[in-house]
Structure formats: C-alpha cells, structure tokens
Computed example of a mutant assay.
Amino acid sequence: MNSAEELGMQFGIFTVGDVTADPTAGTTPSEAERIQATLAIARKAEDVGLDVFATGEHHNPPFVPSSPTTLLGCIAGQTERLLLSTATTLITTNDPVKIAEDFSVLQHVSGGRADLMLGRGNTGPVYPWFGQDIRQAIPLTVEHYGLLRRLWREDVVDWEGELRSSLQGFTLAPRPLDGVPPFVWHAAIRTPEVAELAAHYGDGFFANHIFWPASHTQSMVELYRRRFAHYGHGSPEQAIVGLGGQVFMRHNSQDAVKEFRPYFDNAPVYGHGPSLEDFTALTPLTVGSPAQVIEKTLGFREYAGDYQRQLFLVDHAGLPLKTVLEQLDILGEEVVPVLRKEFAVGRPADVPPAPTHRSLLRARGDGGGPHPDDDHPEAR
C-alpha cells in the first residue's frame, strides 16, 4: 500500500475518549473498559489501512484520556505503521517543559510516528486545576508555545516570560529524534489567534470542523492560508491544513439513520438540541451510506482547498465497541481507498504532502541517502 506521504493526504480517526451510556442497551462502560476499547480501536485503525490515530486530552469526567502520551506510547508498542497524534494537547494548562519531554520520548518510542495538535482547551474549570487563569488563555498559548519551540531546537535554553517561572541553563532530555521536533498542528474551533499562531510559525492548522457550518470552517482556513503566505512560508495553497469529520455508516442509508438516531439524540455534546437531519444539513456530520460519506467528504475541498489530513470521529456517544470496529471496516475497505484516489485527482504538484518525520528529515537535508528507518513504512 502506498504511504500517506506519497499520496499527499493522511486519513485517520480521532477520539474524545468519552464514557457515555449506550442509550439502546442502558449500559455504561467502566473507565477501564473504555480505555481498553480505545486501544482496540487504534489497533483496528492500523489493520484497515488508516494512517493516523489521534486522542483528545480531557481532565474531567466523563472522559478518560487525561494522559495522551501514555495512551499513545502503549499504542506505539502495539502498532507498526500508524502515526500517533493528539486532538488536542492543551498548550495552556500543560507545562511546555513537560510537553517537550513527553513528545520527545514518544518520538523515540514510536520510531518517529508521532506529531501533536496543540489547542487552548474549552473547559473552563481545567485552568484553575492546573494553576492557570482562563482569562489568560491566548497569552498562555503564545508564551508557552514560544518556549516549547525553543526547548526542542536549542541545546541549552535560558528563558524568561511573564506567565511561567524562568529557565536557566535547561537542556531537554531526551533530545528530539534525529534532532527533528515532532510536527505541530494548531487546532481550533473558533479562535482566529490560533490560526494566526500556526501561520506565523509555518505550522499546520487543524480545523475541528464537526460542530460548525462550512462557512465558518472556510473563513478560519482562509485566514490561516492568507497569513501563512504573509509570513513568507509559501503560497496560501501550500499551507498545511487538516480537517475533522464525523460519520456513521451502514450500507443502507435508512438503516444508518435509524441506528444512529438514539445515540445522536442523547449525546452529551449535541443531544437534545438540533435534530439529526438539521445537524447533518448544517455541519460535516454524515449519517448514511459509504457513498454519501465519500461525496460529502470530497466536498470539503470546495471550501478548504487541497489539504493534508482528514480525521473522522467514529467512537463517541456511547456507541459499542463492536459497532465502532464495523465503522472502521467500512472506512478502511470502502471509503478511504476512494477518497485517496479522488483527492489525488487534480491535486497541484506544489501542494505539499502531509508532513512526517521522514519528510521533515528530507527537508532538513538529511534524507538523500539510506536511513535506519527506511524499512519502516512511516519512512517511505
């Protein structure tokens, strides 16, 4: 199978790690069961040929992924090809030193199959739990990320900021794999400052995309692309964009709607709000046949341009593990192969592929000859 790097786009899934009652069975998994199910879902994602597994970070019930790198490190040991990421790592309430350490270790554990999406978080109580003030969310994001970049790129860091204690003579251990920091995506739902930060540094921008209409996502992506070009990183079309999506599929679309409706109606995030029909009409949520998912997903390019990463949410709202694994079978066998082929049609040659550790090595000039990881699928 061709690697995601060769084809230009990565396809995968992301999880928010919610522990939600199954409204059709009246049962709720334990935290242990939900974590083990997440591991099974990640393994299945690799088995069906997906490229990326990403986990959210939450520190409050009913969610379990409070330690994403622990979870991803475990998955790294159970997979060989899957690229491991987050959706998102909280740059505001996590200490940048700890983020730098954790993801450097994950790089080494996974053989370079790691990147991360940074976000500021949208759960207010988390800030004081970690000694921060939500009113400082944007300044924390900017200051913490500035320090994080230096920690990964400088052997000895002397640093002084306004919102964190200073550092003197600090050296990160371990250093990033091959001296190349993991690629950073900045994830946002509604924050223009995050798009601006991504553009400033020439990093990727990931639009969550699952709760808002296409017009909102379009405006955020266009802002990022314009500012990416403004800062001299390339043309707007060369900016690195990722999108979220949300699907539930059966081969008969009516069966999909009937089966998913009770989960939608009772979901913690959007249950007891707009109808399923209204939500699918207004947002990227697709409930129907594989062909309908393919058609709607291909339509994302009409307002986001050619982009590099597409992640789907398939495992929330109390859906049982068996059903989620069935969704992954359909994604891997019937949906993603078509999307790979169709998204490649007409893709301009100067639109960069999705970044990987290997491509970042090449960009640095280290990729011309043999590499210890060349027989690893991620290194293709």
Rank of each mutant, 00 (worst) to 15 (best):
R120N: 04
W152C: 08
T217P: 06
G161E: 05
H186L: 05
D95S: 11
L147C: 11
P182I: 09
I210Y: 02
D158T: 06
V157C: 04
G169F: 06
L177Y: 06
S215N: 10
A100W: 07
P182A: 08
R150V: 12
T171K: 01
V157F: 08
S219D: 00
Q136R: 03
L140S: 00
Q107N: 03
F103V: 08
H200V: 09
I210F: 02
A187P: 00
P213Y: 11
V109K: 00
L147A: 00
G121R: 03
H216C: 12
R120M: 10
D115N: 12
A173V: 14
V126R: 05
P213T: 11
S215E: 14
V142F: 07
L177W: 05
P174R: 08
T93F: 05
V97C: 09
Y145A: 10
A137K: 02
R135G: 14
D95K: 01
A198V: 04
H108G: 04
G111H: 04
R135L: 12
V184L: 14
W159G: 13
G119C: 04
P174S: 05
L106H: 00
S166E: 13
D133P: 00
L147Y: 01
T93W: 05
Q107K: 03
D203F: 10
G111Q: 06
A198D: 13
F206Q: 11
A173C: 02
W185F: 15
L197Q: 13
D102Q: 13
L148W: 06
F103Q: 03
G202A: 08
Q132H: 09
Y201W: 14
I138Y: 00
I189P: 03
M117T: 07
A173Q: 14
N208C: 10
V126Q: 08
D102T: 10
L90K: 01
A137N: 02
I99Y: 00
L151N: 02
T217N: 12
A214P: 10
D158P: 02
G169I: 08
D155W: 06
G124Q: 12
A199P: 01
N122W: 11
Q132I: 06
G204T: 09
S104D: 11
V156M: 04
F130W: 03
G131K: 05
P181D: 14
L163H: 10
T123W: 09
R150W: 10
R150S: 11
Q132M: 14
R135S: 12
A187Q: 13
A187C: 13
F103N: 06
P128D: 13
G119Q: 12
G204A: 07
D95V: 02
S215T: 13
P96D: 15
L106Y: 01
T93E: 07
I99F: 04
E196L: 15
W159A: 13
H209E: 04
P182T: 14
P125H: 12
N122K: 00
T217K: 01
Q107M: 09
T171A: 12
V180W: 15
Q136T: 09
P125V: 01
P182N: 13
H200F: 10
G169T: 09
S215R: 03
P96N: 05
Q168V: 08
E193A: 06
P174M: 13
P181Y: 09
V97P: 10
D133Q: 00
G119H: 03
F183M: 01
F170W: 05
K98S: 11
F211H: 15
L163N: 12
F205N: 02
